[in-house]
Simulated scan of single mutants.
Amino acid sequence: MPTPSPSKRLLASIHDVGPGFDRQVEQLCALLDLRLGGPRFAMLVVPDHWGQHPLRQDRPFQAKLRAWSDAGVEMFVHGWFHRDTAEHSGTASFKARHMTAGEGEFLGLDETTALARMTDGKALIEDIIGRPSAGFIAPAWLYGQGAQAALAKAGFALAEDHWKVWNPRGDAVLAKGPVITWASRSTVRTASSIAFAALARQTLSALRTVRIAVHPGDVRKDALLSSIDRTLRHFAKSHRPSAYAEIQEPGVDS
């Protein structure tokens, strides 16, 4: 098996981690652990997914988060509810309608509300895992002006969107390139995401940092799991499975 380049990194993450997706997260953990040679990935934790699965009240799942964190899994704050209840207009309306299924929670929040949810989520998750969180990633990777302003004040070391990873304290871009992810909510989106992953395997190998993100819904479709497995195996040959914390120096991929 080829040895990955020490200068190239593979950043993998499991989104929407919380009590409501316990079984699915366990399944994805097993797959990533196998293909990456250990717990060399991140989890994006939702404190109360859609207001139906409060992490604060689920002690068994808190214990799992602490154990994963102790094993080396990085923990990001991933919104609070994950659900978007704001009214949108203009560009934001297009993003809310076409880029996510009502889950862009931080797209329409004002700065005060966004900052409160960020800091509350940070406090909750850090109390559970007993160490600093890795950063903040908005649900669906969507940030409105209020969320962008709040990020500069929330004290997170890292943030991420579809196209980059950056330090919100000074806006230094730490990695560039599209995140490879999959969609399960419709046949058309599933097919297009599988096609994009195949294209990414052919075209993104030159990037210094490749990002792969999986979601609990992916486990419902064998075709998605097969594509995810193939993509992980492909990039693990050329890119070293790494922690997000390793890209803290600005200009790594610029």
Rank of each mutant, 00 (worst) to 15 (best):
K64N: 11
G217W: 06
T203H: 15
F61E: 08
G155L: 05
R131K: 15
V219G: 04
S93V: 05
F156W: 00
W68L: 15
F235R: 15
T119K: 01
L55A: 08
K164W: 01
P216E: 06
A42P: 04
E103A: 08
G102F: 02
M118T: 02
H215T: 07
S5D: 15
F81S: 14
K95L: 14
A134H: 03
A206T: 13
A71W: 06
F94D: 03
A245C: 08
A86W: 06
G177F: 11
A116K: 13
R240V: 11
K95T: 00
H239F: 15
L36I: 03
G51A: 12
A134P: 03
K176V: 11
A114F: 02
P132T: 08
V173H: 00
A42H: 04
G155H: 07
F235G: 14
L207N: 15
A175R: 03
G38V: 06
F41P: 05
D110N: 06
A134W: 05
P250H: 02
G121K: 02
Q148H: 05
A134F: 03
S133M: 08
S13W: 02
L107R: 08
G18P: 07
T119I: 12
E105I: 02
V17N: 05
A191P: 06
V25P: 11
A223E: 10
Q148K: 09
Q52N: 09
S13H: 01
A140R: 11
N167Q: 02
V25Y: 13
V210N: 15
L31V: 09
M1G: 07
W68D: 05
T187M: 08
Q57K: 10
T181S: 14
A116L: 07
A152S: 01
Q57F: 08
A12Q: 00
V17A: 01
H78M: 01
I180V: 15
R97E: 14
L36M: 07
R97N: 11
L225E: 04
D33K: 07
A138I: 07
I14H: 02
V179Y: 02
A175Y: 10
L232A: 04
V252W: 05
E249P: 04
S192T: 13
W68E: 05
R40N: 13
G251W: 00
V45L: 09
S89D: 12
A86N: 14
E126Y: 03
I194K: 12
A152E: 00
I125T: 11
G217Y: 04
